[in-house]
Design a protein around this nucleic acid. Structure first.
Length: 182
DNA sequence: GCCAACGTTGGC
DNA sequence: GCCAACGTTGGC
């Protein structure tokens, strides 16, 4: 299973918006590398949702792929901001995937937090600052999730309690994600 | 195939 | 709102 990070501007579409809608077609991506990453996505792949260009920058929570790559119809809609005349229904150039909400983190894993995670230091997020769909290694994904769940940053006095609670079987995570069906 | 010009992204 | 970084376009 692969892991991903997808950027979104929360003023345009936030994790809260995704929570409300349940799922969303991730259209408007107009970069070949990002498109190719989306083509490699499989249903169930976990996706970190990253808020960019915002007051609070960082990973807000977790989503998952609920539908694999298929043509992005906004590309052949002249009224759409991401219109690209090179793409047609007969020969689609751009794809989208559908993303389903899983859960919001109790607290944003901020860009600063991310920069302090050793296992995240080589991430493409830093090397390819303009890329909006980024593959993550297992270790990168796990490290971000550990910080999000352990949440030992702002409240170190609570870290021990969190550790004790999560050492049982119940991990304290939220309800299981809405299942992505067909 | 190079690379300057251009437009956009995204942190600050 | 600014502007550096950087991906893309297009002339040669």
């Amino acid at each position: 299973m692969r892991h991903w990070l997808m950027k979104t501007e929360p003023s345009v579409f936030s994790l809260d918006d995704l929570r409300r809608k349940g799922r969303e077609g991730w259209d408007g991506v107009r970069n070949y590398e990002a498109r190719n990453s989306m083509r490699a996505m499989r249903v169930g792949d976990p996706v970190l949702i990253y808020h960019s260009n915002a007051e609070a920058i960082g990973v807000a929570g977790l989503a998952e792929i609920s539908r694999e790559a298929h043509p992005d119809a906004t590309a052949w809609d002249p009224a759409n901001a991401h219109f690209d005349p090179r793409s047609t229904p007969e020969r689609p150039l751009w794809d989208q995937v559908e993303v389903a909400f899983v859960r919001a983190f109790p607290q944003l894993v901020s860009r600063d937090d991310l920069q302090r995670i050793p296992a995240f230091s080589a991430s493409l997020l830093w090397k390819r600052s303009r890329l909006s769909v980024i593959p993550l290694t297992d270790a990168e994904f796990a490290a971000v999730l550990a910080v999000a769940e352990g949440d030992q940053r702002a409240r170190p006095e609570r870290a021990a309690a969190v550790r004790i609670r999560s050492s049982g079987q119940g991990s304290g995570r939220g309800p299981s994600p809405k299942r992505a069906s067909r």
